[in-house]
Amino acid sequence: MKPEYLQQIPIAQKGGQIKELTKGFSSDKKYVIDDQYLLRLFPKKDKQERQIEYDTISRLNELSAYVPKTFEFGTLDSADMSYMILSYLPGQDGEVALKDITQIEQYDAGFLAGKELKKLHHLNAPEGTPNWYNHKKHKSDSYLKRLKNVPLDEHIKSLLKNYIRLHEHLLIERPNTFQHDDFHPANLLIHERTLSGIIDFQRMDWGDPIHDLTKLGFFSVKASVPFTIGIVDGYHDDIGGVTDSFWELYTLYSAMHIVSALVWGGPLGIYEKMLRYSLDVIVDHDEFSQLVPKWYID
């Protein structure tokens, strides 16, 4: 039985088959309509920022066919909800699907994901977007301050703080472009053994495009090392290969991400998991004496 508020949305009203989606961390209510449309509903109070997300997705679809198309944005006043309707992209998320394809297929899918992400980074930030150095350094300083209260070995705290302080100058004059800000296998779809879509733009932001690759060593390698290597290689395909300057920024952002993950891990009840992942990244970079992570070169 369709929820009553769906009767107020023409596409849903006409839809023959409507299935609710419950997977994922988003608080949106999500429905698939006739395997063609994805309906996302959210509180009306979030309408303004979600309109920006919707408009950005529309512009990103012009850059990559792996981004959903946009169809409708509206409000259900009676339900105090707003909604967007996007095209429904087929496939399973990479965390589930990658284990069922070969390592060569994993690499190829990652390579394509990296190439498509690079296309999305051609979308420049709106005029008036804060300077990346000031924005990122302010957040990093705040997290480093809060790291003092995290029950973590003092050697690791010093290691992270010293590395970040020594290299944060790399943030100066970095470009401001679109950031997906949650780019990892759970938000990348696999269908018929290859990449079929990039989804979940709710955390989108603006800043250094390289920052979008921050979570590769944290989450993506856990799903598939070949896929993760493919992302890095595909992202750099148009310039002939991975550069040292990329790894310098990537490693700095990895250190910063560890700090934020450990700070937030406690309140979210996942500190032990974040600590394990963080220690893996530290080992991969040989306590930040090595720029290129072991998973890429081994």
Results as ranks from 00 to 15, higher is better:
residue 1 M to H: 14
residue 5 Y to H: 08
residue 6 L to R: 06
residue 6 L to H: 01
residue 8 Q to D: 07
residue 9 I to M: 05
residue 11 I to K: 01
residue 11 I to A: 08
residue 14 K to W: 06
residue 16 G to D: 14
residue 19 K to G: 02
residue 25 F to V: 06
residue 26 S to W: 10
residue 27 S to Q: 10
residue 30 K to T: 06
residue 30 K to I: 06
residue 31 Y to S: 05
residue 37 Y to P: 00
residue 37 Y to W: 13
residue 43 P to F: 00
residue 51 Q to P: 12
residue 51 Q to A: 11
residue 63 L to V: 08
residue 65 A to G: 12
residue 68 P to C: 06
residue 78 S to L: 14
residue 79 A to T: 00
residue 82 S to H: 11
residue 84 M to I: 01
residue 90 P to M: 15
residue 91 G to V: 02
residue 91 G to P: 06
residue 94 G to H: 06
residue 95 E to A: 01
residue 98 L to S: 06
residue 99 K to G: 01
residue 99 K to V: 04
residue 112 L to M: 15
residue 118 K to I: 04
residue 122 H to T: 09
residue 123 L to A: 12
residue 124 N to S: 02
residue 124 N to G: 12
residue 125 A to R: 02
residue 126 P to V: 04
residue 128 G to N: 10
residue 131 N to A: 08
residue 134 N to M: 01
residue 140 S to K: 09
residue 142 S to W: 09
residue 144 L to W: 12
residue 145 K to T: 13
residue 146 R to D: 01
residue 146 R to V: 05
residue 147 L to K: 11
residue 154 E to C: 07
residue 154 E to D: 15
residue 156 I to Y: 08
residue 159 L to R: 09
residue 161 K to V: 02
residue 163 Y to V: 00
residue 166 L to V: 08
residue 169 H to D: 09
residue 173 E to G: 02
residue 174 R to G: 08
residue 178 F to V: 00
residue 181 D to W: 10
residue 182 D to H: 11
residue 187 N to V: 05
residue 191 H to E: 10
residue 193 R to W: 05
residue 194 T to K: 15
residue 198 I to C: 02
residue 199 I to C: 07
residue 202 Q to D: 10
residue 203 R to K: 15
residue 205 D to K: 15
residue 205 D to C: 13
residue 207 G to S: 04
residue 209 P to K: 04
residue 209 P to C: 05
residue 213 L to Q: 12
residue 219 F to Q: 05
residue 224 S to R: 06
residue 230 G to H: 13
residue 243 T to W: 10
residue 248 E to F: 09
residue 249 L to R: 14
residue 253 Y to C: 12
residue 256 M to C: 13
residue 258 I to T: 01
residue 261 A to H: 04
residue 261 A to L: 00
residue 269 G to T: 07
residue 271 Y to N: 00
residue 275 L to G: 05
residue 279 L to G: 00
residue 281 V to N: 07
residue 285 H to P: 01
residue 285 H to D: 00
residue 286 D to S: 03
residue 286 D to E: 14
residue 287 E to M: 11
residue 288 F to S: 03
residue 289 S to P: 04
residue 290 Q to P: 03
residue 295 W to R: 01
residue 295 W to L: 03
residue 295 W to Q: 01
residue 295 W to I: 00
